[in-house]
Simulated assay, not measured.
Amino acid sequence: MLNGPLLVTERLILRPPAAEDFDAFAAMCTEEETMRFIGGACSRSAAWRQWCTLAGAWHIRGFSMFSVIERSTGEWVGRLGPWEPDGWPAPEVGYGVRASFAGKGYAFEGAVAACDFAIEFLKWPQLMHCIDPANTRSQALAKRLGAANAGATRLPPPFETAPVDAWTQSADQWRQKRKEF
């Protein structure tokens, strides 16, 4: 059952999380390097709680991160999209893909669709990406999307001690950058 929008790109389908995606998400949550900057690797039961949070946010907020599906294979690639947990510094477009899909441009392709969705459908006045100062790969993606480091910000508990910078751009800056893609 689809409980939200379906976004289609050249290689990807973005849709709300579904029950059949959970095993792949739980596997991603065990990948130390993948999870290093997005909450840390965790057990299947902790992954379940995260998964239900992502799915539930669609019902509570009307948006959340999408499941990213590779069109050619139907494989679950990762999760990315608009996200605003209670106490977050601002609405965010976050991204994370499984190790086996890293380096293929899927995070960029999906993030472009998610940023379009946030600006044009959700009517966000700005985009933000919360990025650990040591996460150079995520910083490179944020730069490619047109965001700039606006400096340190703070996440709510239990992440309040995590170092994080807010990478931002206005809706108008996004629309201008979007013409380049």
Rank of each mutant, 00 (worst) to 15 (best):
M1Y: 14
L2Q: 14
G4H: 00
G4E: 08
P5H: 08
P5T: 09
P5Y: 07
L6Y: 04
L7A: 06
T9S: 14
E10I: 11
E10K: 10
R11M: 09
R11Y: 01
L12W: 02
P16V: 07
A18N: 11
A19P: 10
A19R: 12
E20S: 04
F22H: 09
F22N: 10
F25R: 03
A27N: 07
M28P: 13
C29V: 08
T30N: 06
E31R: 05
E33T: 11
T34Y: 01
M35F: 08
R36Q: 13
R36D: 07
F37V: 12
F37H: 12
S43I: 02
A46N: 05
A47K: 01
W48R: 14
R49P: 05
R49E: 12
R49G: 06
C52V: 10
T53W: 12
T53L: 08
A55W: 10
A55V: 10
G56Q: 13
G56K: 11
W58F: 00
W58Y: 01
H59I: 06
G62Y: 09
M65L: 15
M65V: 12
M65Y: 12
F66T: 03
F66R: 04
S67R: 04
V68Y: 06
R71T: 07
R71A: 09
S72E: 05
T73D: 01
T73N: 01
G74T: 14
E75M: 02
G78L: 01
L80M: 11
G81C: 03
P82Q: 04
P82M: 04
P82E: 04
P82W: 02
E84W: 05
P85D: 10
D86A: 13
W88L: 04
W88T: 07
P89W: 07
P89A: 15
A90W: 11
P91C: 03
P91L: 11
P91A: 14
P91G: 08
R98G: 11
S100G: 15
F101Q: 01
A102G: 13
G103F: 06
G103W: 01
G105T: 08
Y106C: 01
A107Q: 03
F108I: 13
E109A: 00
E109C: 10
G110V: 02
G110T: 03
A111E: 06
A111G: 13
A111C: 08
C115M: 14
C115Q: 12
D116I: 14
D116F: 09
F117C: 02
A118L: 10
K123Q: 04
L127H: 06
L127Q: 06
M128T: 11
M128L: 10
H129Q: 00
C130G: 15
C130K: 13
A134F: 09
A134N: 14
A134I: 00
R137L: 07
R137D: 10
A142T: 11
A142W: 05
K143R: 15
R144H: 07
R144S: 03
L145M: 00
G146E: 02
A147L: 06
A148K: 15
N149W: 08
N149V: 11
A150C: 00
A150L: 06
G151P: 09
T153L: 01
R154A: 09
P156D: 15
P158Y: 09
P158F: 07
E160S: 07
E160F: 12
P163N: 07
V164L: 12
A166Y: 07
A166D: 02
W167F: 03
A171C: 08
A171Y: 01
W174Q: 02
K177Y: 07
K179E: 15
K179L: 15
